Amino acid sequence: TKVFYNGTYVEFNNPEKAKKYAEKVAKKVGGTFTEKNGQFHVE
């Protein structure tokens, strides 16, 4: 499961961990995250 952010991504074996990371990054940058095709995108 990949989490895309700012033109790069971090890959996780565990979708649950990926979601938590996406939430954390989104919170940090004051943005939101969306799930597309089983991957997370932070905006």
Rank of each mutant, 00 (worst) to 15 (best):
K36D: 06
Y9P: 04
E43F: 15
F33T: 06
K28L: 14
E43L: 14
F40A: 01
E11V: 14
G7C: 14
K24R: 12
A22N: 00
E16P: 03
N13F: 10
G31S: 06
V29M: 10
A18K: 00
N14Q: 07
Y9D: 03
K27R: 12
Y9E: 06
F12Y: 04
F40G: 00
A18H: 00
V10S: 06
V29K: 05
F40N: 02
N13Y: 09
T34E: 07
E11T: 14
T34C: 15
A26V: 05
T8H: 12
G7P: 00
N6I: 05
N14F: 05
N6A: 10
N13E: 14
T32S: 10
K28H: 12
Y21F: 13
Y21C: 09
N14K: 07
Q39R: 04
E23F: 08
T34D: 04
A22H: 00
Q39A: 14
V10E: 05
F4H: 06
A22R: 02
Y21D: 01
V29G: 04
V25L: 15
G31P: 00
G30M: 07
T34K: 10
E23M: 13
V25G: 02
N14I: 06
N37F: 09
N14A: 07
F12V: 02
K17Y: 11
T32C: 13
K24G: 09
V10H: 07
E35L: 09
E11S: 13
N14D: 14
Q39S: 13
N13K: 13
H41W: 15
Y21N: 02
K20C: 14
Y5M: 07
N6Q: 10
K24T: 12
Y5A: 04
H41C: 14
F4P: 00
N6P: 00
G31Y: 04
E23Q: 12
A26P: 01
G7V: 02
T34R: 11
Q39N: 15
V42A: 02
K19H: 07
E16C: 14
K17M: 14
K20I: 12
F4L: 04
E43N: 11
V10R: 12
N6W: 07
V25H: 05
H41Y: 15
T1M: 07
E35I: 12
N37A: 08
N37I: 04
A18N: 00
Y5Q: 03
G7I: 02
G38T: 03
E11M: 13
F4K: 02
G31R: 04
Y21Q: 02
K2L: 09
V3S: 00
E43I: 15
P15K: 15
E11P: 05
K20M: 11
E43Y: 15
G31K: 04
G38P: 00
Y5K: 02
K2N: 03
Y21M: 03
T34Q: 09
G31M: 06
A22V: 03
N13D: 15
Y9Q: 06
F33I: 15
K17N: 12
K28E: 14
V25N: 02
N14T: 14
G31F: 05
T1H: 13
E43W: 15
K27D: 07
T1W: 15
A26R: 02
V25M: 14
H41F: 15
A26N: 02
A26H: 02
K24V: 11
E35D: 05
K28G: 08
V10A: 07
V10T: 09
E16D: 12
F4R: 03
E35Y: 13
Y21V: 03
E43T: 13
Q39P: 01
P15G: 06
E11I: 14
T32H: 10
K17C: 15
K27P: 01
G38R: 04
F40C: 02
K19R: 15
K27Q: 12
